[in-house]
């Protein structure tokens, strides 16, 4: 069998970066699915792209800017209306402990 494209440890690392709490079963399923997709994606290696510029926008444009003008904000109430939890006019989040 070929080397796996992605290991369980890598899946765990990526899940942490993406802030997704995955169950053990999910991690394993994810690993094998990502493995299959990455194996498929490997076909890109057949192409020599050394002298090819990357395209980040298909329709090239430059220098789109706005003038420095103040526009009305939305009312505080409108901006907080969707908050899962608030304390007066603040969004409230659980205690922050560093990882």
């Amino acid at each position: 069998m070929a080397e796996p494209k992605i290991t369980l440890a890598e899946v765990e690392h990526v899940a942490r970066l993406a802030r997704l709490d995955l169950s053990q079963a999910e991690k394993e399923r994810m690993r094998s699915q990502l493995d299959a997709i990455l194996t498929y994606i490997d076909k890109l290696r057949q192409l020599d792209t050394d002298n090819v510029e990357p395209t980040s926008h298909a329709i090239p444009m430059v220098n789109v800017m706005r003038e420095d003008e103040v526009r009305p904000c939305l009312p505080t109430e409108a901006m907080l209306a969707n908050a899962p939890e608030r304390a007066s006019d603040f969004f409230r989040v659980p205690r922050i402990i560093e990882e």
Partner: peptide, 9 residues
Amino acid sequence: TARASLVDF
């Protein structure tokens, strides 16, 4: 010690 934090954007 905070139990929660408040965010102002």
